[in-house]
């Protein structure tokens, strides 16, 4: 069962993602900000990390850069799931090392499809939904 770490500050959305992924058969660990996500990422093994961009303490860009700095975590694909969709924001996210940048609101089936694609291929060029 693939393990996914999610970071999302909004409780409702954190729950939504958690339920959606769990319902589709993933094991989910949730963090409420970037800082926590970086800590949790170091403690456990994850197949994918999915993060919001705008979060307190440490935003998603920064958290992604921190994770990509760590040799043990560098290979773990990071995906942004954000309501921020301007081209400069997408660019910055991919520049931080993310493999994909998805936009909120999301359709659950599309989200699952994209995650499965990433897990199967390992790599797929970044694309915005």
């Amino acid at each position: 069962m693939p393990r996914i770490l999610i970071a999302e500050d909004e409780l409702d959305i954190r729950e939504l993602i958690k339920i959606t992924l769990t319902f589709s058969g993933f094991e989910v660990v949730a963090a409420e900000d970037g800082q926590k996500a970086v800590e949790l990422a170091q403690d456990g093994e994850y197949d994918l990390i999915m993060m919001d961009v705008q979060m307190p303490h440490m935003d998603g860009y920064q958290a992604c850069r921190e994770i990509k700095k760590m040799p043990a975590l560098r290979h773990v694909p990071v995906v942004f799931l954000s309501a921020k969709g301007q081209s400069s924001e997408v660019k910055e996210g991919l520049g931080a090392g993310a493999i994909d940048y998805m936009l909120k609101p999301f359709a659950p089936d599309e989200l699952i499809t994209r995650i499965n694609q990433i897990l199967e291929n390992g790599r797929k060029p970044g694309q915005v939904t």
């Binding site: 909004e10 409702d12 959305i13 939504l16 993602i17 339920i19 959606t20 319902f23 705008q54 309501a83 921020k84 969709g85 301007q86 924001e89 936009l103 909120k104 609101p105 999301f106 359709a107 659950p108 089936d109």
Partner: peptide, 23 residues
Amino acid sequence: SLVSHELRTPLTSIRGYTELMLM
């Protein structure tokens, strides 16, 4: 950027939970 973020965030919950129920 702000407006679009602020509109999309509640929409994410509305749409997402609706889809969850239908799933």
